[in-house]
Design a binder for these strands. Structure first.
Lengths: 243, 243
DNA sequence: CATACATACATGTATATACTTTTACCCGAG
DNA sequence: CTCGGGTAAAAGTATATACATGTATGTATG
């Protein structure tokens, strides 16, 4: 018999917290299956409707998946929002039925510029990882991808082979994203970008600046340049979907 | 005593549909206050818990706001997601402390092209509203805004003065958006765009194509062109917020 | 051995009921 | 007129109960 904390919040919130905590600490490991509603009722001493509400809301929030007649399971790592999703260019290309290939131009450890250190919200100048990758769709370069990565959150970033694993997949697997910032703009290609993407200098490019946080710490800063004529970002979103 | 439709969907979904429909058709007008839970129980013939669930989920989805002890109200026009929010350029400009002004270039009724009718998912060629507006930030043109509007959902669109009310605000107020599609790309300015935005022909522009649905019906199609050097779309998003 | 049925168990929905908490409003005392 | 308390009304939470629905599994039957 487990006793829930004696706080002011409603019971179903305590149950949600209890479940989230146990997900975080890796209880219910391996098959990631949670106790059934009735088992939770027995162990927590609350009614089934209360447990059900907690589970339903956690499911709506994307933490759990449920299957009638089978059980409740911890949801697989989440692709999150449309704006995050558009960032996984490798998956996007494959989904269109095309072939994706990466070419790693740079993978190094650098001392950040003052401006970059500021973006990372660093007090001191600690070194960070830096990568530049070109992504190809059927041998046509479509995206130039520059990333700066916080080594305290993602060690060994500089030892990966990003021609095999996409940087996005690696980062997603290594650290949970709790917050994302995007800035999207249109810029003309500079000489280097034009060369890597095989387009004319001054041609229109979509430029996506992205920062991700893990808790209060900036995890990554990415600068993605899309060859304008060959690419667009798409998303479809249903505000009222809730389950 | 109202009878809900005899479909397969669960009762609380029918109640949600009933409420959404009455919001859309402007029932409960003026003070935008809904009947109390007990009144809905009486008029729909379902239990209070079922009504409560419907109202709670519509509240979570942003359609309603509720105040304990007072009542349930239709939520003010919704800023919703980051991607939708970026579209309200008037609010954005004002928030930056700058002055916003609109200039209406075109406001007319047209017979859509075949392609446009297809985008609207129209079987027949019914006429639609068409507007072109330039949005200024401190007398500097920043966005060219072209919209196509479904007259069956938003009548009188052609009779508004969009130099006073922003098109976005008017549309948001008139119909609830249940789904949104965005396509973002970077394009060079053509002659007409360049003239209206006061930039060079061929200069980089951010181009945002947007379709909104109300239920199964396409409500609006928008083509927004941002002067690239003067504008960028920004957003910040917390995936893990869940209530 | 394979198929079909029965069964157990899980989640999903619906109801009736009770109590709590918050808010608005009325009305009386000062 | 003002302050204050009482009261009614509304949403919020919690429970017990019942039945519906989907899934897996074991068993009997051909």
């Amino acid at each position: 018999m487990i006793t829930l904390p004696d706080t002011a919040s409603p019971l179903y919130e305590k149950v949600k917290d209890y479940i989230l905590t146990n997900i975080g600490t890796g209880q219910w490991g391996k098959d990631r299956k949670l106790p059934s509603e009735n088992e939770l009722v027995a162990s927590l001493g609350v009614s089934r409707m209360t447990v059900h509400r907690a589970l339903r809301e956690l499911t709506a929030a994307g933490f759990l998946t449920r299957l009638q007649g089978v059980g409740t399971f911890i949801a697989p790592p989440r692709p999150q929002s449309t704006l995050i999703e558009i960032n996984n260019i490798a998956a996007e290309i494959v989904e269109r039925g095309n072939r994706h290939r990466s070419e790693v131009l740079v993978l190094e450890t650098i001392t950040p510029t003052k401006e970059l250190a500021l973006s990372f919200e660093f007090a001191k100048r600690v070194s960070i990882y830096h990568s530049v990758v070109v992504n190809f769709e059927n041998d046509l370069p479509v995206q130039l991808e520059e990333r700066f990565v916080n080594p305290s959150l993602i060690p060994d970033y500089d030892k990966q082979d990003f021609s095999k694993t996409a940087t996005y997949d690696y980062l997603m697997q290594k650290t949970p994203v709790t917050e994302v910032e995007h800035i999207i703009s249109a810029i003309p290609a500079d000489a280097e970008t034009a060369r890597h993407l095989g387009i004319d200098v001054g041609a229109c490019c979509l430029f996506l600046h992205r920062r991700t946080w893990t808790g209060a710490v900036v995890a990554t800063i990415s600068k993605l340049t899309y060859a304008g004529s060959r690419y667009s970002l798409g998303s479809r979103y249903s505000p009222s979907k809730h389950s």
